[in-house]
Design a protein around this nucleic acid. Structure first.
Lengths: 334, 334
DNA sequence: TTGTAAGCGTTATCAA
DNA sequence: TTGATAACGCTTACAA
């Protein structure tokens, strides 16, 4: 494989000029430029990217840290990230943690060692202190968790108000006894959705009963199991807010298994609007997250950091939308 | 950041020795080794990976080319790939093509320029000639498409016999009029599944009627639409083989929309066993693909190529399994 | 067992 | 506008 020296020799110029033709063609005289380009063409020369990366200490690569790739929501965000990354000449490295903190730390090392130019964290159980410090020294964006007081840039939805909207929808339909199946309460996102639930009830002077709050794990099975607990209650809830669609589906299955109907006997509202929620029967009424947009925005923010541009805004909150389908019934809301 | 020279100076050795301590600790005397390690520790030294990659012309990175990341099956394969890659110290770069051939070619360039050590193609519409030639010069694995006569290593399932098993299942249940909704027929995988369908019918001396063959696009909507065509037939089929689960769900939806029941009026068997197929109602009877295993095997094959080890076998065919659930009814098969 | 020193191919500074 | 040349930090013959 020909290198820059070969090209320089053939074109009768210095390597500096060849380099210029490649990087800043406008800084070299037309005549020499064509001469060099001809030599490049003739030798079928391609710059050694590894040498360039080494010399420039940049890799044009960013890392996306994700708890699990085989999950409905992350691939969509990654799609958005990938879109913007590609447009800007960046490559996307996959950082699957499988929930193992050690893995997360090893990816952080890659960032510190400049193996990647920046990092996007799609949700995390890392210590916020660590993320904040990391964000002080390196380009980092935290997506999907909004964390009070975090100095690193974040892209998220307003989980509290989105959850409130979901529960208000149930209340508006006349439900008085509304249960919630939360996500794992050690992540802030789950606590926020629970907060929104509380707010919606309190706004209507409905007491919050602890028997109506069950913690799930975001899995289908946990939705099923927690719903069974609700159904075993003397006064079981007539409506359920499940903190994600997968649990909502599990809950609905449990309702059906109990010989009841959704939405007639129990209304269920979900969260996420995963692709399957429209196919499921009854089609899920749910809160739609703009996954692709979140991915795009995150990458845009990261790029600004990499380029050293100032961020006018650090915390980005994107809009969610209540999608009314079948699982809560309806009364022609607009 | 301290570099190797700093360490060498502090430990009073040459950089060569420092390098040895890092690469082949056993080749340096215990006493010097500890001396060097102490200096490394003291300076908090970390090797410059970029310099190493450049020097060694390897990146410890492989690229996974995928038509779309936001799809049910690819993330699972990627998970398998990632698993093995990580164990071996390799990183996984995402190569989303979005079906654009130009993108595919740009990823191929990355491979040729040694920006990655190898590449796994998860399905492809590239010319087989190109893949074969690529495979001659670089570490490449083609996953999920089995292509007759291809010289590059492949990991796939036997689409023909798997499809045959699916259709045989329907025939065994007594169906005589079986329709198929195929995938896009410009990809070999779809043609193979159609072949399997044909074989199953012919084996039982059932004629293949062209009205019973409809081409879908692997999407839910196409499943729905093609099923509607079947239902409009004078003699509509009593059983359907859908070439993937998503289309099977669309088909079932169409059957229901037509006022008929699944499996009582129309039986439907799918293909893939995506996560959602167990949740869907009726739960899908389908052919399970070992996605994670395919990913793992692909990465193992790629690693062998990268290390220059000979491949005892080039074409790997993994087992599929008929999963009997509800969408075809059943009679207690074992 | 360790040291010397020559690369690897590019970029960037400085001078012409 | 171009050229000479010194880095960048590591690996690896080869020599000692």
């Amino acid at each position: 494989m020909a290198n820059m020296i070969d090209v320089a020799r053939l074109a009768n110029v210095s390597t500096a000029t060849v380099s210029r033709v490649i990087q800043n063609p406008e800084t070299v005289k037309e005549k020499t430029r064509t001469k060099v380009l001809k030599a490049i063409d003739e030798l079928n020369y391609q710059p050694n990217i590894l040498a360039r990366y080494f010399r420039r200490t940049e890799t044009k690569t960013i890392l996306v840290m994700v708890p699990s790739i085989a999950n409905n929501v992350f691939p969509q965000m990654i799609e958005g990230i990938d879109l913007v990354a590609n447009q800007s000449g960046y490559k996307v490295l996959l950082g699957n943690t499988n929930q193992e903190p050690d893995k997360a730390y090893s990816y952080i090392e890659e960032l510190k060692q400049k193996q990647v130019d920046g990092m996007i964290l799609l949700t995390t159980r890392l210590d916020y202190q660590i993320i904040s410090e990391l964000g002080d020294d390196y380009p980092v964006v935290l997506t999907s968790d909004y964390i009070e007081g975090l100095t690193a840039p974040t892209v998220a939805i307003d989980n509290i108000s989105s959850a409130r909207v979901a529960v208000e929808h149930l209340l508006q339909l006349g439900h008085q006894r509304v249960g919630i199946i939360t996500g794992p309460l050690d992540i802030p996102l789950s606590r926020d959705r629970l907060k929104g639930y509380r707010q919606a009830l309190l706004e209507r002077d409905i007491g919050v009963e602890s028997v109506l709050i069950q913690e799930g794990s975001h899995s289908y099975e946990s939705g099923y199991n927690q719903m069974q607990k609700f159904l075993a209650l003397d006064k079981s809830p007539t409506a359920i807010f499940a903190a994600n669609d997968t649990m909502a589906m599990g809950a609905i299955k449990a309702v059906k298994a109990h010989g009841l109907r959704v939405p007639e006997d129990v209304a269920v509202v979900g969260f996420d609007n995963i692709q399957f929620s429209a196919i499921f029967e009854p089609a899920l009424t749910t809160i739609a997250q703009p996954f692709i947009e979140m991915g795009k925005r995150s990458m845009e923010l990261l790029l600004k950091q990499i380029k050293g541009e100032p961020l006018e805004k650090k915390q980005h909150v994107l809009d969610t939308k209540l999608i009314i389908r079948e699982s809560c019934g309806s009364q022609n809301q607009d």
